[in-house]
Amino acid sequence: MTLAIWLQSILDGLVIGATVSLGAIGITLTYAILRFANFAHGEFITWGGYFALAVLGAVAGSQDLKALLGGPFEPFSFGWPLIVATLASILAASALALILDAIYFRRLRRAKIAIASVIGAFGAALVLRNLVVLGYGADPEYFSREIQIAIRFGPGLRITPDQIALVFVTALLVVSLHLFLTRTQMGRAMRGVRENPDLASVSGIDVAAVIRATWVIGASLAAVAGVLIGLTIQLRPSIGFDLLLPLFAAAVLGGIGSIYGAVLGGLVIGVSESLAVMLIGPEYRAAISFGVLFLILLVRPQGILGARA
């Protein structure tokens, strides 16, 4: 096998890893601030993708909106409609997260049994996924059925314009989140609650607002991940659930609570999966995350960038 094939595999892995990173940031933030493993987080990805699909459908069905928003930006497959759909999807996913917290997770947290939240989230995940099946059926959906021509560069490598946009959007979001957490009052408050919730509370930090911000950030990034997956691959009701293991593996690998750890973890998982497909075939792709997770728990359970507990 030539070098180009390996490089291509790594490149594909990085593209997939970028979406895993976006989801893993939400997992790691929820775990660090709300202190439970949110098995429902993958569903924000699914719902984000389907929210955008619904908006795109509405735009395509209305002549006025179509004329207003115009066609795709060449060479990308998307234009203003997808940008509007993504923004709407971010709002809808955030609202979904806040509603779920208000009517469900907040009460489970009050029960003071950490595990009630986890099994509650596992149940919520199955309910949310099956609501999508109820609405859209189990068949895959596409934002656009056109095949994109890949750009060739370097030693025979290929990448589609949409994939470049995906990597660019992910990088932009990670940098924005970094600035938010380090430069704003709310960002500092979130880091305070992550380090020590009781101390943060007596220092006058509004813990309820921090919790809301955590849900909104996690759900928004997940919604964008869902849109990017819909854009570059396809939407199925199970995408979020299928991503859950890679998301957890990425968050644990990077170190729970660490944003950069989650990004790094996501990229490592993406590349490992991609290389594993080359080496052992696509059947066991999803098990790679488990292998990585198992190894990291065995040798360095605090993760690459995590502090020892």
């Binding site: 593996a249 488990f290 728990l297």
Partner: peptide, 13 residues
């Protein structure tokens, strides 16, 4: 929670 994540993983595998 790590046991939860790991057992979820073994079941998927």
């Amino acid at each position: 929670d790590y046991l939860a994540i790991a057992t979820f993983g073994i079941a998927v595998t």
